[in-house]
Design a protein around this nucleic acid. Sequence first.
DNA 1: CTGAAAGCGCTTACAG
DNA 2: CTGAAAGCGCTTACAG
Lengths: 345, 345
Amino acid sequence: MINKKQVTIKDIAREAGVSPALVSFALNNTIGENGQKRYKVNDETASRILAIAEKYHYTQNQAARSLRSRRSRAIGVILSDISNSFFSSIARQIEDEAFSANYTVLFGSTDEKPEKMERLIRTFLSKGVDGLIIVPCEQCEPIIASVLERGVPVVLLDRDIESLPVNRVVLDNESACRQAVQRLVEGGYRRVEMISYDMAVSNIAHREAGYRAEMAELGLEEVVKVHRVSYGDVDNAMDGCLSNINFEETDALIFATNTLSVAGVKALHRKGLALPRKIGMVAFDGSEAFDLYPTSIAYIQQPVGQFAHEALLRVIRCINHPSEPAATLVLAPNFVDGDSVRREE
Amino acid sequence: MINKKQVTIKDIAREAGVSPALVSFALNNTIGENGQKRYKVNDETASRILAIAEKYHYTQNQAARSLRSRRSRAIGVILSDISNSFFSSIARQIEDEAFSANYTVLFGSTDEKPEKMERLIRTFLSKGVDGLIIVPCEQCEPIIASVLERGVPVVLLDRDIESLPVNRVVLDNESACRQAVQRLVEGGYRRVEMISYDMAVSNIAHREAGYRAEMAELGLEEVVKVHRVSYGDVDNAMDGCLSNINFEETDALIFATNTLSVAGVKALHRKGLALPRKIGMVAFDGSEAFDLYPTSIAYIQQPVGQFAHEALLRVIRCINHPSEPAATLVLAPNFVDGDSVRREE
DNA sequence: CTGAAAGCGCTTACAG
DNA sequence: CTGAAAGCGCTTACAG
């Protein structure tokens, strides 16, 4: 920014008749997170300094501060796609809470591409972020491992990389899908299949595992079937996927992500398959799109607020206490009931 | 970030047997936007330097760079709410294009509150952003004026503040709503009313003005009516708003924003008012929610990509050529047809 | 084409 | 409780 005449600590020091260092102390004590002052400054001089700072609308030069203190008070958040509602909601909450905690946040979207992940991490690191919240994509374990080696605080969000000693906040995906199976079977469906992504990430894997486990538990292993569509043009892929399903046999579908769920309902609609009579379903995450659909759709609700809150909390804690061991937080899903799990007789 | 042993320009200089300054020149020439080199470095030494930098995974310390060059290569983007799909799509596009242009972006959401706007601007400025893209909210003219006075490059997005000498990228809101009226009237509706926000921002004002102007032009001024709901809990507000409308008289509704449109369709649905027989409508922006609705809904489509692209382009141009006069870009809306504007006889 | 020097604005030990 | 000094890593004129 081209600032004609930015007021500096020196200007304030001159006017107050003290040293620049003292101004720095005074200023940072007001900004300090907890009540206690690290460097005690005479209350009187402090308030004189603050008054002058106020008068000139002094704003700290973050670049100088970061350079010297090796802290940027910025964190990087790397998501799959910030225009996906699940991630944009999380982004919004992180933004708000980070702001309150006096941090700014940089967002980046990977589109599930490891190259983008790498570029984003590099950029954010050169910007000097104090920590990273990351939704890992396929094949990015080595990248994240190298970040950890450099001692950068990292929290993995939504998806896990089990082999890494890293903080994580994830959903209990297995139990989520177990519950989905249970409800559908209780509702009168038997041949429950899953539509998932062709993507090697932990949440997808656990959702599939939960589905399989519960089907087995209910003695339905012989009808287990997971259809996988590739990430990208979902609407198209979904039409293709559904055309491979024999709906005379298949009773119900569980969709493994929010995007798949919305695309799925649309595709079923296009095929003229009536919910819940012809086919039952459970979605992952709610959507505005369901509100106007004639049948209320049951879905697995993720605690978005908790995701955001916990991830931020943990990354900040990790910044302030780098030696604490990494922790895993598994959040409980909430099943939201709907008519789409009740076959009408 | 606590970096045990970050490689600096000095380390590279030592290994290459040159001065730190030369390393800086060499590095920045590769990074330089256009082909021409500002400081010419011997090709051989340059490539030697680059090889060493590569070898040690050198990443520039942005804080130092910003402090010295007074450029951060960061821009701040202040929106109403990044979890609103219109804004999150714009955010995503800005993020991508900024990344390609070697800029990082900071996002902030105002929730239409001038205090938040002010805090965000202060924070971003202290972070040293090179420029700002702002969706102004009510009562923030003085704040933005003071930013302009400081010489900070600003582009206003989506909404205008006419009194300010500032760059802007906005929609031709008036023509958008004129068209909406035309289509509804052509489709057999007469008593067209508008549902808008109780908010003093330019786009809302122009949408209302367009509606009024076209109604007048068609000789329907006596049935002009604008209902205003307050920003916040839209679903609730919408129910309240609709309960004040006599649907024996009112023929059709134009909704002034995307949030109002979705809330509107839902509320009409709850009231059991069938589209398009009982009531016609035009939405502002499309929505996933409409895809599953039995009647296809006509809407005014905003060129989201252009919004993002042009705003970024202009803020960067303004950063590089601060003396160029401010310019206004008015984007054309696109009317997407649907059955909701055709009254069935 | 290359080097030495100054300095961006701040914080951080270190003395007093 | 307060001050003087050094230095974070880089870029930028200025000489050569």
